[in-house]
Amino acid sequence: MTSRELAPDAGRGPGALDPASSPTVKPDAGTLHRQAAELLDRLPVVPVDPAPWRTAPGDDEIVRGASLLLFRLADEWLALPTSAIEEVAPMRGWHTVPGHRQRALLGLVNLRGALVPCLSLGELLGVQPAPQTQRAPSNMLRASTARLLALRHGHHLSAFPVTEVHGTIKPASAALGAVPATALGASDGFAIAVLPWREHVVGVLDPLRVGAAFDRSLA
Rank of each mutant, 00 (worst) to 15 (best):
I85Q: 09
D28E: 12
V204E: 03
G189S: 14
D9F: 11
H95P: 00
S67R: 08
R101A: 10
S3R: 04
I85R: 04
W53A: 05
R42Q: 15
G15M: 07
L184R: 00
R198M: 14
V63Q: 04
V210D: 04
Q128N: 10
L121E: 02
S138P: 00
H153K: 04
S67A: 07
P131K: 05
L208S: 12
V202A: 03
A36F: 15
H100A: 11
A178N: 14
P50K: 06
T55Q: 14
A172F: 12
T55L: 09
L73P: 00
H153N: 07
L80Y: 14
L43D: 03
T31K: 09
D28I: 01
P171K: 06
L105Q: 15
P23G: 14
H153Y: 10
G65F: 08
P52I: 02
W53R: 00
P131D: 12
N139Q: 07
E38S: 03
C118S: 10
V88A: 14
T145F: 10
S22D: 14
I169P: 04
I169R: 06
L105I: 13
P207T: 07
L124E: 15
G185L: 04
G13C: 15
A84D: 13
T82S: 07
M1T: 15
L17T: 12
A56I: 08
V63K: 01
P98T: 05
L149Y: 00
D41W: 09
L195R: 01
G13H: 15
G177W: 05
K26I: 11
H200V: 07
P90M: 03
T145V: 05
G185M: 04
V109I: 11
L39D: 08
V204F: 02
V165A: 02
L32A: 09
A84H: 10
D188C: 03
V46E: 12
V46I: 13
V162N: 00
L78W: 01
R64K: 11
A181I: 09
R209P: 07
L195N: 03
E164H: 02
T96G: 14
A174H: 12
I85H: 03
P98Y: 12
H156S: 10
L141R: 00
P19K: 09
F190S: 07
L108W: 12
